[in-house]
């Protein structure tokens, strides 16, 4: 199962990166979102998961003694990463439309043009 999640994070990462390497802004935006999903899954997977783990929701009176729990720290990191990914994607898109308004194009210059 960890293996499956790991493989999946690799797939998301590779697909996202392939699109991000394009010079077309629309492909890049999709690639960016795929890539951030891949990285989030990567972080979650690498934190591991003990067998028969419970969600990190404690019960009053028992505290953390009734383990094992999934690692809450990785989840907290990813939660904010998801939301910030959205904010970054929005900024990327705003730049794209601005670029398009200015130049009438939806791609950015590459190696051969500068």
């Amino acid at each position: 199962m960890i293996g499956l999640a790991a493989a999946l994070s690799g797939v998301l990462f590779a697909c996202g990166l392939y699109l991000l390497l394009s010079r077309n802004l629309q492909r890049m935006a999709i690639g960016f979102l795929l890539l951030s999903n891949g990285i989030n899954l990567f972080v979650l997977t690498s934190a591991g998961l003990p067998a028969r783990a419970a969600p990190p929701l404690l019960v009053e009176g028992e505290g953390a003694s009734r383990g094992p729990f999934a690692d809450p720290l990785a989840q907290a990191f990813i939660l904010t990463a998801i939301v910030i990914g959205l904010g970054m994607a929005a900024f990327l898109l705003a730049l794209s439309t601005r670029h398009h308004d200015a130049s009438g194009r939806d791609d950015v210059e590459g190696d051969d043009e500068t």
Partner: peptide, 13 residues
């Protein structure tokens, strides 16, 4: 912050 930034962003587009 989340409400404000999300809605602002969508409204801007």
């Amino acid at each position: 912050v989340v409400v404000g930034s999300t809605i602002t962003t969508l409204a801007a587009f």
